[in-house]
């Protein structure tokens, strides 16, 4: 498989993992290891003095893993920039999953604020991976603003509904000069394989692995699906026929009768 390069860093794995919704940090760590991922997202929260929670950070720190802090919880570009500065200070990385979704019902990203924040954060030296609508025009604008990737959604966060935006994802992939990471909505390994067969550079998966009956084995299933999909893409898929009229793949000449 071709290596994925984002902002000069090479990734052998094209599966990125989110760390939300796991029933324990130990299970999260085992799923991360099983997936082979080299990019893991995390969020931020305020410290509570009486909170004796196990620190999740120690479970994901690994020299082979790029931390990708997100800006979840912000409502506009200004708040996103503040959150980005805090994350750079706390985690020592300028990589950032920019997500601005002020609407709590559908968690759909605000395109105007996302573009505005991307423009400013790039100027401030951040490596910006924006979670965005599957809007080809927006994705080109984000690329022009200096985004390191674009991360259009397949379906709303946590829905497991797969690639509801597939035709727009095709256009985005065809036009993009930066890696296209399909983020949100991927609910089954087949969805991830489909995205990779279309030419997506990577998939970001969280809920589908975290809430699986066996997250560790599901992480392996996603790893294999992403690899299979990518290999299929690089190998060149056969064209799909326009009609259901069969085209024989075996000789039709009769050989049992004269």
């Amino acid at each position: 498989m071709e290596k994925l390069v984002i902002a000069g860093r090479e990734f052998r794995s094209r599966l990125f993992l989110g760390t939300g919704k796991f029933s324990s940090n130990d299970l999260m760590k085992r799923a991360i290891n099983a997936s082979g991922t080299e990019m893991v997202t995390l969020a931020m929260k305020r410290i509570e003095l009486d909170d004796k929670d196990d620190d999740m950070l120690q479970h994901i720190i690994n020299p082979n893993i790029q931390l990708l802090p997100n800006t979840s919880g912000v409502r506009n570009a200004e708040e996103a920039i503040f959150a980005a500065q805090l994350s750079r200070e706390a985690f020592g990385t300028n990589w950032l999953k920019l997500e601005i979704h002020p609407d709590p019902r559908y968690l759909l990203p605000d395109s105007t604020e996302t573009l505005k924040a991307t423009e400013q954060l790039v100027k401030m030296g951040f490596v910006v991976l924006p979670y965005c609508q599957a809007d080809p025009t927006l994705c080109k604008r984000l690329e022009e603003a200096g985004a390191a990737t674009v991360m259009p959604l397949g379906a709303p966060i946590g829905t497991n509904k797969g690639l509801q935006t597939r035709e727009f994802l095709r256009i985005i992939i065809e036009q993009s000069g930066v890696p296209v990471v399909v983020d949100a909505g991927i609910g089954a390994p087949s969805h991830a394989a489909e995205a990779m067969e279309m030419g997506a550079a990577a998939c970001l998966v969280n809920t589908a692995i975290a809430v699986a009956g066996n997250p560790e084995r599901m992480a392996i299933a996603f790893k294999q699906a992403v690899e299979a999909g990518r290999m299929a893409y690089e190998s060149g898929l056969g064209l799909q026929a326009d009609s259901l009229v069969a085209e024989a793949s075996s000789p039709l000449t009769s050989f049992l009768n004269d």
Binding site: L42, M44, M56, S72, A90
Partner: peptide, 29 residues
């Protein structure tokens, strides 16, 4: 509501009623 860089922690004096926000990592996608 402004980042206080780590390099300034030891020289920044506390004062009565000072409002600090401290964040840490959390699980998230």
């Amino acid at each position: 509501n402004k980042l206080l860089p780590q390099g300034q922690w030891s020289e920044t004096l506390l004062y009565e009623g000072m409002r600090l926000v401290v964040i840490k990592a959390a699980c998230g996608g």
